[in-house]
Each structure stands twice: as C-alpha cells, then as structure tokens.
Amino acid sequence: MNDIQHRVGIKSSADNIYQLLTTDSGLTQWWTNDVSGAGEINALIKFRFNGGGPDFTVVELLPNKRVGWQHSGSVPEAWIGTSIVFELVDDGEQIFVNFTHANWTEATDFMAHCNTKWAVFLLSLKDAAETGKGAPFPNDTQIDHS
C-alpha cells in the first residue's frame, strides 16, 4: 500500500484547527465550498467539487488531537478503500498537523496529483486557521492547465 503524508505547522489553537476539520462551516473554509454532513462519529461527509466528489465516513474524533475518515463512496475510484487521518500535535510553539491519506493500491500519476493538491489544501487550512481566510475550491491554487 502507498500513503500520502504531509506535516504543516500552524500558529493557532488545536481547538480552532479541530473545528476546521470537524464542522461543515470549518471544512468549507479550506477544502471545498460545498460540504455537508460533518459532525460526529459515523457521520457521512459529502465533499463536492462542481457537483461531484468524495464521501467519507467519520471514524475517529479525539477532540483537539485526531480526526479520522474512511472513504465511503465510489468517486474517485482510486480512493476506494483509502482513509484520511489528521493528527494534531502541540509542540508549545505551534500545532503540527500530521496528515495521512493511506492505503492507496498503487502509486500513479493521479496519486501524485492528489499529493500535490493535498499540500495546496493543507496550506489553505493553515491560512484559514492563522488568518481566517483559506482558499477552498474553487479558489484554490491550480496545479495544471486542464
């Protein structure tokens, strides 16, 4: 199996970051402007990008520490069976978000694309937490011309 991993230091409270990861209003500030369903364990979160997109079931919520999702849809196909974890680590100076998108069946160009896009969106999370203004889809940084 293959995993995407990132680590981003954010000058904000763990509670603020946790809210950005666990509520519809928080998620719309940094990933996509169309989110519904966030909130509790076993909730199905629907993330939409121009009408389509992935669904995730919330599988773990440790307040201010860890958020876990399991892919629960058929889109995109390469994400079937994958899971996402956001681990929040306070080092006294900042909160590190350790991100993992785990269990990819193979390393492909699409996985490489998603790796870069996750970096873009994690920097959007950083901006949302630090300044109150992220860059969620459709206002995110584009990484290709298609």
Rank of each mutant, 00 (worst) to 15 (best):
C114L: 12
K133L: 09
Q70V: 00
L88E: 02
F86W: 05
V97Y: 08
D140T: 00
L88D: 03
R48E: 15
N33I: 10
F99H: 11
W69H: 12
S72Y: 06
T57D: 06
S124N: 09
F47K: 07
H145F: 11
G132E: 10
H101K: 10
Q29D: 01
I45F: 14
I41R: 00
F110G: 05
S25R: 02
W79Q: 04
G134I: 08
V58N: 03
E106R: 14
D109S: 13
G132I: 12
F121E: 06
I41Y: 07
D34I: 10
V97R: 07
W79Y: 07
N115Q: 13
T100P: 10
S83Y: 06
S12P: 00
I45E: 14
D91Q: 03
R66G: 05
E106M: 14
S36V: 12
N2P: 04
D109T: 05
Y18P: 06
V59R: 14
R66N: 09
L123P: 04
V59S: 14
A107T: 12
A102S: 15
A135C: 04
T105R: 15
L27K: 13
K133P: 00
H6Y: 05
T141N: 02
K133E: 13
D127K: 13
F49M: 02
N64S: 08
K126I: 04
S25I: 05
A129K: 03
K11I: 03
G81L: 03
S83K: 14
V59M: 06
T116L: 15
H6K: 10
S124A: 07
A112T: 08
R66Y: 06
K65R: 10
A129E: 07
A14K: 04
F56Y: 12
L21M: 09
V89M: 02
V58A: 08
S74V: 09
T22D: 04
F121R: 03
T108E: 14
M111T: 09
G51Y: 13
G68R: 02
R66I: 08
V67Q: 05
D144H: 08
D55P: 03
H145L: 12
L61F: 07
N50Q: 13
Q70M: 12
E60L: 15
I10K: 09
V58G: 06
G39E: 02
S83I: 01
T28W: 03
